[in-house]
Every structure is written in structure tokens, then in C-alpha cells.
């Protein structure tokens, strides 16, 4: 059965000082699924994303990716074995063009050393051309081709979020983590985003773990939903069962004024 699981979160706990951001969190993301992680602000969703991608270390617990524990791997190694991500607080390379941002996402597949690059060997030139072609294809795929030569910092938020996804696609991941990809998007942009996310799953066979507040989006695309509240998993199931779950309703109602 485990072979159908892409990533397994096992008893993860994490405290910041006295604050327990995550307490004994466990769940699995099945291969080929869109798995949503929802919960009120401060529930610990981003912290878990950071632990999965290696930017933070858990106090205890284990992350199993494709049947292998990855706790000890640095962030760049995790990306190399197939985990890419986007950031809630956009982390683009602002002074670089849209095309260059995507190209950087491909560096891990085509690393050329300083000396080879400085000598601009033929092999380096070929690789460079290859990277540009592939990056342009990805920009086409997310619908940003018309922006390719603009500086990333000059894009509106909606397009910046798409660019983050494009850069993550460039790493050719098995699993993609999206942290609030619809934040700051208007209705039409959100609709396009939901199509893009479904395409990532169906056309590119990427497994997705998505943190998101937009319930309409989440209910429309998710196969499984895990609900986090105050660092603990309070529910898990398909969209319908989550919508009816009394614990989830209280957690969300409790948050509203």
C-alpha cells in the first residue's frame, strides 16, 4: 500500500519558544492526488510546508518521501529528489526577468561549474539554449509568455503567483507544495488557477499538497483534505465529509467575528 503514498508526515512536532506550532501531526499524501491542508491563520500550515521542504527542522517526527526518510536532507537535495514549492510571501528573484526566474528553477538539472561557464564551452552554450526553450514552454503553459522579458518585481500579484508555480514546474517535481496560491487573486484569476492546478495533476502527473483559504477553490479541486487547528490535525476526508464535519465547522466559526 505504501507504494501509493508520495509523502508521509509522521508525528511531526515543532515549537517556537513556548508556542506549539505543530503537535504530533501525521497524515499521508497519496500519489497523484491533490491534497489540501486547511485551517485558520496560525494553525501551523506554513510551518509544516517549511519542514517538508527543509527550511525548518522538526523537533520530533519524520518525513517519508517515496518510502525514504528525508529529515536529514538540506533543502536543495529535497528539491533534487522531487519536492518543489511556492511561497505564501512571494520569494521571486525581483531584479531578474520572468524568463530568468524560470531558468533558475532548472539549474539543478543542468548545473555547469564556474570554469566551464566562464570558458563558455560549446556544451554550456547548448545547455543554455535548451534551458531557454524549455523555460519558454513552461511560461506558455502557465500563460506568462507575454511577460517573459519583464522584471519579476514589476508583475501584479496574480502573475507573481503564477511565476512561482512556473519556477516550481521547472524543477520537474514529483510533489509540489503550494502555499496559498490564490491569495490576492481575483475571481477570474482564481478560476484559471484551479484549471492550472488540475492540469498539473492530470497532464504533468504531479502530486500536490496545497495550503489555501479559498474554500470554493479547495472544494472544487481537492481529492483529500486535512484540517489543522492550533497545530493539531482535527479532521481528514474528502471535500463533502469535511464540509459536514462538526469539529471543522466549529474551528472555522470560532475564528469568525
Amino acid at each position: 500500500m505504501d507504494s501509493q503514498i508520495t509523502i508521509k508526515i509522521k508525528n511531526i512536532s515543532k515549537s517556537f519558544g513556548g508556542l506549539k506550532a505543530l503537535e504530533n501531526v501525521s497524515f499521508s499524501v497519496k500519489t497523484g492526488q491533490i491534497h489540501a491542508l486547511i485551517g485558520p491563520n496560525g494553525a501551523g500550515k506554513t510551518t509544516l510546508m517549511n519542514i517538508i521542504s527543509g527550511l525548518e527542522t522538526a523537533d520530533s517526527g519524520e518525513i517519508i518521501f517515496n518510502d525514504k526518510p528525508i529529515n536529514k536532507l538540506p533543502p536543495e537535495k529535497r528539491t533534487k529528489i522531487g519536492i518543489a514549492r511556492t511561497f505564501q510571501n512571494l520569494e521571486l528573484f525581483g531584479e531578474m526577468t520572468v524568463l530568468e526566474n524560470v531558468m533558475v528553477g532548472m539549474y539543478l538539472k543542468y548545473e555547469t561549474g564556474f570554469i566551464k561557464s566562464g570558458l563558455m564551452l560549446n556544451s554550456v552554450r547548448k545547455v543554455q539554449k535548451d534551458i531557454i526553450t524549455k523555460s519558454l514552454n513552461i511560461l506558455d503553459y502557465v500563460g506568462l509568455n507575454h511577460r517573459k522579458n519583464e522584471y519579476a518585481k514589476n508583475l501584479p500579484v496574480g502573475e507573481q503567483r503564477l511565476l512561482e508555480i512556473a519556477r516550481a514546474i521547472a524543477a520537474d517535481p514529483i510533489l509540489m507544495l503550494l502555499d496559498e496560491p490564490a491569495a490576492g487573486l481575483n475571481i477570474r484569476e482564481t478560476k484559471n488557477l484551479s484549471i492550472l492546478i488540475k492540469n498539473l495533476k492530470e497532464e504533468k502527473q504531479i502530486t500536490l499538497l496545497i495550503v489555501e483559504h479559498d474554500m470554493e477553490l479547495i472544494m472544487g479541486i481537492s481529492d483529500t483534505i486535512t484540517v489543522l487547528n492550533f497545530g493539531k490535525v482535527i479532521a481528514e476526508g474528502d471535500p463533502l465529509s469535511i464540509q459536514k464535519n462538526p469539529d471543522v465547522i466549529t474551528a472555522y466559526l470560532g475564528e469568525e467575528d
Binding site: 527550511l55 536543495e76 514549492r85 531578474m96
Partner: peptide, 28 residues
Amino acid sequence: NLINSMTGKALQAMHGSEIATQTAGINL
């Protein structure tokens, strides 16, 4: 040559965001 290569872009990326550079699979 170096600046215009992928290595040069990785260097600029590191300048822009170390977190994003790392998670793009680059060893800082």
C-alpha cells in the same frame, strides 16, 4: 561568460532570495 551563464543567474538568484535559491535546488 560566467555572468551570462546559468551560474551567473544562480549568483543573481542568491542575491534576490536565498530561500528561493535553496528550494530551487541550488547549494548556497
